[in-house]
Design a protein around this nucleic acid. Sequence first.
DNA 1: CGTATCTTTGACCAAATTCAAGCCACGTGG
DNA 2: CCACGTGGCTTGAATTTGGTCAAAGATACG
Lengths: 248, 248
Amino acid sequence: MRRQGICGQLRATTQLRLARLASIQTFSANSRVWGDDCEHDLVGVLVSGYLRTQRHRIDGHRQIVSMALPGDFIAEHGRKLPGEVEAATSARLCRFERGGFRRLLEDAPDLARAVYSLRVTKLDQLRLLAWSLGALTVEERLCAFLALATRFMPYAPIARGGGVLTIDFPRADIADLLGTSVETISRITHRLDAIGAIRIHCPDRFEISDLSRLVTMGCIDETFAAIRFAASDLKWARTRDPKLPDAA
Amino acid sequence: MRRQGICGQLRATTQLRLARLASIQTFSANSRVWGDDCEHDLVGVLVSGYLRTQRHRIDGHRQIVSMALPGDFIAEHGRKLPGEVEAATSARLCRFERGGFRRLLEDAPDLARAVYSLRVTKLDQLRLLAWSLGALTVEERLCAFLALATRFMPYAPIARGGGVLTIDFPRADIADLLGTSVETISRITHRLDAIGAIRIHCPDRFEISDLSRLVTMGCIDETFAAIRFAASDLKWARTRDPKLPDAA
DNA sequence: CGTATCTTTGACCAAATTCAAGCCACGTGG
DNA sequence: CCACGTGGCTTGAATTTGGTCAAAGATACG
């Protein structure tokens, strides 16, 4: 895990100093990680599970604006914009003591560079989301999501080609990420099944025989290979339950 | 201008070293600023005018993913994700020589910090856009846009309270930013006029008598005051045609 | 004065939301 | 072991929003 995400890009000394600031924190599904009622700063690396950054309307309608994947660097500062971070699944966060982190940031340029480049990655992902929300139909968005999900969620290749994708967070989160409703997600997955783009094994498990077809249906031909995810390098090393270091 | 945007946060020596890397570049409306066919990196500060960061679908449908305002720090790196930057209006960019900028970034921590904090601001703006595209109706989005526009576009207070907002980029850009069509923008502005939320003076000039009403209609009560824009501090100092320094 | 561009308006249509009910799997407690 | 309730998923029907197409006004520009 140390080789992934932020830590892989750091010098040994910086890693060490960072480790001294770290402590593992556990969250259960749907618990609040950061928000109004929490302490001000949040800095850390997600070790396992998924977090969602979201925002509500007065009427309760929710939009997820970003999903944090294992390996992602998390940083929320105490500015007072509506928004909160919750655990989409049970999750473990390697949290850094904020004062110490800030100081380390000052005199470890390799850390500053790593943090910056991870922010750029997040920005790219968010641009992709905004684009898909504004320019794509729900069906296209879902195809794009499924295709991309093979890059950061369990995707087991199968004999006859293709693979089986397991979505490990609830339908409602997919719906709120794609700006639609669970009903529509259901309808569309079944439609995709009907035309043979996917095969539904069970509600959270889909067989994808032709990934490139999904990519094209999701209008992300150029993007699919180019977009970066924290988790995409390690590719399910972590499903083999790696023993965790004292600090990620 | 030096006190705004990125430069206001820098030490004098850094400002000086930055100025040596700078050169002003002019773009006419709708010209390409950065994209596939351009050279790899783009680093600079927008001096005047507006840039749009956008992305196309194969069918030509365009989504604007971010508007750069005067004072905004621009940085696009040579990763190969679809997307391009164009001038929405005629614009002047204070561009930095990229190699030199990269080197300066290494040993000027104040610059690194400033660049980072501007990235965070951009991220907030993008989150707001993604949220509004996913969670709001077109009418709400437009109300939110108009309200926010008073923060970064010419907004002249008038005697009877409220003010007159001048939109200085074309309707089509508003439509593509809000993920809708010019027809819908037209219909909705007239509807807003009918219910008295705004008064249309001419197609690009609206009188807003009750800004807080627009804010509420746009579902951004919490956000309106909290969100930051590069331009919102200087507030039309620049409409008085400041003479420009050699480097922004 | 004609042409091009932008805006407005109308009619029509498709996509997707909402509301409602039904289904299924699961866990709990009698 | 079964009844029951809960939560998540599916399906249907009615409704609405907003997109597309087409044409008519406006406005600016040579």
